[in-house]
Amino acid sequence: MNKRTLEENIFKILMMISISLVVGSLIIIVALVIINGAPALSLDLLTQTSSGEFYLGAGGGGILNAIVGSLLLALPATGLACLIGIAIALYLQKDFIHSWLAGFIRFSLDILWGIPSIIYGVFCFLIMIYLGMSASVMFGIIALTLLEIPIITRYMDESIKLVPIGLKEGAYSLGSTKFETAVKVVPRQALPGILAGILLGLGRGIGDAASILFTAGFTNRIPSSIYDSTAALPTMIFQLSTSSLPVVRQKASATALVLLIIVFTISILSRTLSKRYMKHVIK
């Protein structure tokens, strides 16, 4: 074997090691959560709200409050982000706006995407304090909305950009206005990408802890109004994992298992949905 092949083979081995580390770490993560969490997973855990003892040892209820809380935070937040996102994404089309301005807005959205979620949490916390209010479902939703807007908008924008100009011309030539074309024709063509973006945003929102830690607070009850504070799955995991008791940590893993199942379902759903709606799309 000459020097050139030797070098190539060494790097091939390094590549195999690297990719095994990456894939291995995901397998370890999933395995850890399943092995530690599955024994603690029970119907009671899923259907009861937690009580004080829940964090101190075995028993003491379940995580229903966190499951409900997560849904109450992430679903409305995704809905709001979706409305705002679609408005921006449609507006960013060439028909409405100068391309340099569109470029600037895309740039700022990309930057917002990269901002750590803790910053959104702090930002909403400051507004909350300024308004003299306390941690609640409402501010949790606002924080998650801000977090999801850049993701959802950029996804929608990218898929709308791919809508062929001929389709728009077709709509215009039938007498549609810019607004009608933007709202009625374009989204249909871009639907797979839009759906993928929404689900990606939902996945990000439902899994984020740092932004809702101060804004949504934490409680053992299921919130009865948007002014109540609420637990959520990520914050519940965070709370439970601070305990040094193995029993409590098992509950943290079980909660993580529930969260992972939700996140993976969303991810699989996103793939299959965007594949299914692909067939309505003119290529």
């Binding site: 850890l32 994992s241 940590r249 992972l260």
Partner: peptide, 14 residues
């Protein structure tokens, strides 16, 4: 797509 709190938990456990 794995939430960061799950990474944290696994780091804690392993």
């Amino acid at each position: 797509g794995v939430p960061s709190v799950v990474y944290g938990l696994c780091a804690l456990l392993f």
